[in-house]
Write a protein that binds this DNA or RNA. Structure first.
Length: 574
DNA sequence: TGAAGTTTAA
C-alpha cells in the first residue's frame, strides 16, 4: 500500500536499517527490551492463551529509543553526509550540533528525573561532542524539546553554566514559555527573576515575556495570579501602560476569563487610558463566551469613549451569530457595516463563508465568495484555506485541489494549513498515497513558501490513519520524520496514539506511548487513561494495568501546579 | 496565540 513511503523525503534511511520491526497486518505487535537495543517483535496471531501469558511479562520499553537507534545509525554514517550517493535529508551542516544533543537525549530518554540529571549527562558527554554553542543551536534544541520541560530546562541550565555564554532574551522567553506550558510556575518565576537581575545589566524581561507568563497562568486557570503579575509588572522592568493592559485583557479573554478582564478594565480605566484595541479585545471576549448583550453594551461604551466600532468589532459580533447559525442577523450586520462606512473585509467574509459551509449551506457559502468579489475584496491565504475546507466537506475533492493550483498561479502562498486541510481531506477518504504525496510536496515547497513547514497538526490525520490501518512501518516513518523536523509530541498527539491503538486492540503499543508521555511529564487525559485501563482489563493484563496505574499516579504528582503567584515567589526569596 | 478568520482528536 505504501510502496513509495521511503522516497517521501528522499531517504529510506529514516527507517531503522536492519530493524527487526516488521509490519503486523493483523497480529499483535509485541515489544521486548534488551539493554541497548529495544526491538519490536511480532507475536504470532491465534495463540491467544499463550500470548496472554506473555503479556503479563510485557516490559514497557521507552519507545523513542528506537528513534534514538535511528539517530545513532545516522550519526555513525556521518561521513556519508558528503557522499553524493547519499540521499540523506540533512542539507544544513549546522544541524549537526543539534543532532549530537538530540542523540544524547535519545540515548537517555525517559531516564532523566530532573534538569540536574540532564546537565550532568551533558557534562559527561560534552568533551566528546566538541561543538560550538550559539543562539541558533540553543533555540533549536529548546524548540525541539518544547514538550519536555526537563530536557529543555536541563539543557538551558547546562548551556548557561558553560563559560563565555549568556542566554539571549529570546532563549529566555522560549524557556519561560516551556515551563509555563508544563505548569512549572516555580521554575518559571525563578527564570523571570533571573532575567531581571541577569549580570547586572538592564532587565531582559519584556512585554513578550510577561505576555507568555500571563497567558500560561490564565491558561492554567490561575487568573488571579495572572492579574497579580500585571499589578507587579513594573518590578520586572515592564511599563504598566495601555499595551501591557491590553496584553493582560487579551490573555484573560482567551482563557475563559472575560468577566475578570472586564473587572480589570473597570478598575484601571481611570489610571490607564484604553484604546480601540482594549474595547475590541473585550468585545471579542464577550462574543466568544456567547454573551452578546455584554458585547453590544461594550460597543456602546466604546462609542461613548470616542471610538467608533470598526470592522474588527463587527466581525467579532458576526462570528458570534455565525456560531448560533443566525444568518439573518449576520446579513443584517453586514448591511449595517456598509451603511456605517466600515465595509466587511476578507476576514469577515471568511468567517461567514466558513460558517455557511459548516452548516451545510454550501451554495450560500459560495455566494459569499461572489459577493466578496463584487465588493472588490481580495482573497488571501486564510480565505482560500477555508474555501478548500468547505469544498472538501461538500465532497468536491478535485475542486479543493484546484484551489491550491489556483493559489500558486495567482501568487497567494499556500501555507501549512492549506496542505494540512488537503491532507486531512485525503485521509478522510482513505487516499493515503495522496496524503503522503501532499506531505512530500510541502517539503518541496518549503524553500519557496516558508510557511509550508509541516507542524504537529499536519501529522495528526496521517498518524491516525497509520494507527487505524496498523501500518507500523508508516507510523514509525512518520514519527521519525516528525523527530527530524523538530516536532516534539504534545499531550494531544500522545493521547491520539494511545486512543487509536486501544481502539484497534493493540494495547501493548498504547502502553508504550502512554509511558513515554508520562516520562516526558505530560499528564494524560482522563478519557485516554480510562480507555487504556478498560482495554487492559478486557485483556486480563493485570500486571500491566498495575504499572499503568502507577504511571498515572506519578503523572499526577509530577505535573501538579506549583507556586504561580509572583508575590509569594518574590517574598520567599527575600 | 499580542484586536478579528482558515486544518485536527471523540
Amino acid at each position: 500500500m505504501f510502496k513509495n513511503q521511503g522516497s517521501i523525503v528522499g531517504s529510506s534511511l529514516l527507517y531503522r536499517s536492519g530493524s527487526k520491526l516488521k509490519p503486523t497486518p493483523n497480529g499483535y505487535c509485541h515489544i521486548t527490551e534488551t539493554p541497548d537495543l529495544p526491538v519490536w517483535v511480532n507475536s504470532p496471531k491465534n495463540t491467544k492463551p499463550k500470548a496472554q501469558e506473555e503479556e503479563e511479562d510485557f516490559v514497557l520499553p521507552s519507545r523513542l529509543d528506537s528513534l534514538g537507534g535511528d539517530w545513532r545509525s545516522r550519526t555513525r554514517r556521518r561521513s556519508s553526509f558528503y557522499d553524493n550517493s547519499s540521499k540523506l535529508v540533512f542539507q544544513h551542516p549546522k544541524i549537526d550540533d543539534a543532532d549530537m544533543i538530540a542523540e544524547v537525549f535519545a540515548k537517555k530518554r525517559g531516564t532523566f528525573t530532573s534538569p540536574e540529571d540532564v546537565a550532568r549527562c551533558l557534562d559527561d558527554e560534552y568533551s566528546s561532542m566538541n561543538m560550538n554553542i550559539n543562539k541558533d543551536l540553543v533555540d533549536k534544541i529548546l524548540n525541539k524539546t518544547n514538550n519536555d520541560w526537563i530536557s529543555a530546562f536541563g539543557f538551558f541550565n547546562w548551556v548557561d553554566s558553560q563559560t563565555n555564554y549568556t542566554h539571549s532574551s529570546d532563549s529566555y522567553n522560549i524557556m519561560v514559555d516551556i515551563l509555563g506550558k508544563a505548569k512549572r510556575f516555580d521554575f518559571m518565576w525563578v527564570l523571570v527573576k533571573e532575567m531581571v537581575q541577569v549580570r547586572g545589566e538592564g532587565s531582559l524581561v519584556s512585554l513578550t515575556t510577561m505576555a507568555k507568563v500571563t497567558r500560561r497562568l490564565a491558561g492554567a486557570g490561575r487568573w488571579v495570579d495572572a492579574i497579580e503579575s500585571f499589578r507587579m509588572i513594573e518590578e520586572f522592568g515592564v511599563k504598566k501602560d495601555t499595551s501591557s493592559m491590553n496584553m493582560l485583557l487579551d490573555a484573560l479573554c482567551k482563557e475563559n476569563g472575560v468577566r475578570r478582564a472586564w473587572g480589570v478594565f473597570m478598575e484601571y480605566r481611570d489610571e490607564i487610558t484604553p484604546d480601540a484595541a482594549s474595547f475590541n479585545i473585550l468585545i471579542h471576549g464577550w462574543c466568544n463566551a456567547g454573551q452578546l448583550e455584554e458585547a453590544r453594551s461594550t460597543m456602546d461604551e466604546m462609542q461613548r469613549f470616542g471610538f467608533n466600532p470598526c470592522v474588527i468589532s463587527y466581525t467579532s459580533l458576526i462570528e458570534a451569530y455565525c456560531k448560533l447559525k443566525d444568518f439573518r442577523e449576520v446579513d443584517f450586520i453586514l448591511d449595517e457595516m456598509q451603511t456605517r462606512g466600515c465595509p466587511p473585509n476578507v476576514v469577515t467574509y471568511t468567517i461567514v463563508m466558513h460558517a455557511l459551509g459548516k452548516a451545510k449551506e454550501t451554495q450560500e457559502a459560495f455566494l459569499v465568495y461572489d459577493q466578496m468579489k463584487k465588493n472588490n475584496c481580495v482573497p488571501d491565504t486564510g480565505f482560500f484555506n477555508s474555501l478548500i475546507y468547505i469544498l472538501g466537506r461538500a465532497g468536491r475533492i478535485q475542486n479543493a485541489h484546484d484551489v491550491l493550483v489556483e493559489m500558486k498561479h495567482t501568487g497567494i502562498s499556500p501555507d501549512a494549513t492549506t496542505y494540512g486541510t488537503l491532507i486531512s481531506l485525503a485521509c478522510d477518504h482513505s487516499q493515503d498515497e495522496t496524503a503522503l504525496k501532499l506531505l512530500k510536496e510541502m517539503e518541496e515547497e518549503e524553500s519557496s513558501f516558508p510557511c509550508c513547514k509541516p507542524d504537529l497538526k499536519t501529522f495528526t490525520p496521517l498518524l491516525k490513519i497509520a494507527c487505524k490501518k496498523n501500518a507500523v512501518r508508516l507510523l514509525n516513518y512518520l514519527l521519525n520524520y516528525m523527530f527530524k523536523k523538530d516536532l516534539s509530541l504534545d499531550m494531544g498527539t500522545y493521547c491520539l496514539l494511545v486512543d487509536e491503538h486501544c481502539k484497534n486492540g493493540r494495547v501493548e503499543q498504547a502502553c508504550v506511548f502512554f509511558e513515554e508521555m508520562v516520562l516526558k511529564r505530560q499528564l494524560p487525559k482522563n478519557q485516554t487513561y480510562s480507555r487504556l485501563i478498560l482495554s487492559l482489563e478486557r485483556k486480563k493484563m493485570k500486571k500491566t494495568k498495575g504499572r499503568i496505574q502507577q504511571l498515572m499516579a506519578m503523572a499526577h504528582k509530577t505535573t501538579r501546579c506549583q507556586i504561580s503567584s509572583p508575590k509569594i515567589f518574590l517574598s520567599m526569596n527575600e
